[in-house]
């Protein structure tokens, strides 16, 4: 986990004259689960677009380190490819037609890295099978994708991203439309993949407690500010007040964290501006 998989250094992004990300720097280790929290409009999805090289940062650099030093995974063909093949991305909103005439297995195999070859080699089939087993999709591999429940569908999306054998996995609110049980299930599956395959995970969510349970570290983004660190380092009233720039309070009730906006600033306003 000590090796660095991803290094973001002083990245700023301006879009349409508005600064979305400002001087953001952090690192993600191999096999690290990093939770990304923050209000809407803080630039979480923009950050993913920068990491995917879909968007060029106004300032700063992003480096992917595909080759891992030390304990290496078996040298499969995919892991020796260039960095472009090593990021798996599960985007936020995805509409799938309920009548879509495609079985889950076929849907997953769309994600295979070879762009043109439409038949599956034995290695492809193995990759599809292992991605489906890792995400617990194998049970409904022959069902049409449109007929799955929300949680099952999210796992199929995850499998499609995993089949490329990525070293970094970007998940944009994979739990947003799921019921609490399915949210927990999804996060647990991702966590297990992160550990067993030592894939770095960046996981955007609005659920503080879900992230707090699974993430090694948290990146908390607010418009113009950010904080990186372990759950205990970031989820503190003073840090959050600095991030939001207004009076907020972190309340701990029955072992769960709640972020509350308060009328008056607690502990004075000295930490607020930064």
């Amino acid at each position: 986990m000590n090796d660095i998989a991803l290094n973001v250094s002083h990245v700023s992004v301006d879009l349409g004259g508005r600064r979305i990300l400002s001087n953001l720097s952090f690192e993600v280790g191999h096999g690290e689960f990093m939770g990304i929290l923050g209000p809407n409009g803080a630039g979480k999805t923009t950050l993913f677009r920068v990491l995917l090289e879909l968007l060029r940062p106004t300032k700063g650099t992003v480096q992917h380190f595909g080759e891992r030093s030390g304990q290496e995974r078996e040298k499969s063909e995919v892991s020796t490819r260039k960095s472009t093949a090593t990021i798996g991305y599960v985007p936020q909103s995805r509409q799938i037609d309920t009548e879509l005439p495609m079985q889950v297995r076929d849907f997953v195999s769309l994600g295979l890295p070879n762009p043109f070859r439409f038949w599956l080699s034995r290695r492809d089939k193995e990759a599809v099978q292992s991605a489906m087993e890792l995400t617990d999709c194998a049970r409904f591999g022959h069902q049409p994708i449109g007929k799955l429940s929300g949680g099952e569908r999210q796992r199929a999306y995850l499998a499609q991203a995993l089949v490329r054998n990525p070293q970094i996995l970007l998940l944009d609110e994979p739990t947003s439309n799921l019921d609490p049980g399915a949210q927990e299930g999804m996060a647990a599956v991702v966590h297990q993949i992160c550990r067993s395959q030592s894939i770095s995970v960046l996981f955007i969510s609005h659920d503080v407690n879900l992230i707090a349970r699974y993430a090694d570290r948290i990146l908390y983004l607010t418009p113009g500010h950010y904080a990186v660190g372990t759950v205990d380092e970031v989820m503190r009233t003073d840090v959050l007040q600095r991030l939001y720039g207004t009076a907020v309070e972190l309340v701990r009730m029955a072992g769960k964290l709640y972020l509350v906006a308060t009328e008056q600033a607690i502990g004075g306003g000295t930490d607020i501006c930064n």
Binding site: L52, P91, F116
Partner: peptide
């Protein structure tokens, strides 16, 4: 020739974009 990418992009456009 274009069967696979067309299938991906036509039936799962968001995924196709995510897979670059």
């Amino acid at each position: 020739v274009l069967y696979k990418p067309l299938k991906f992009d036509s039936f799962d456009p968001v995924g196709a974009q995510a897979a670059r």
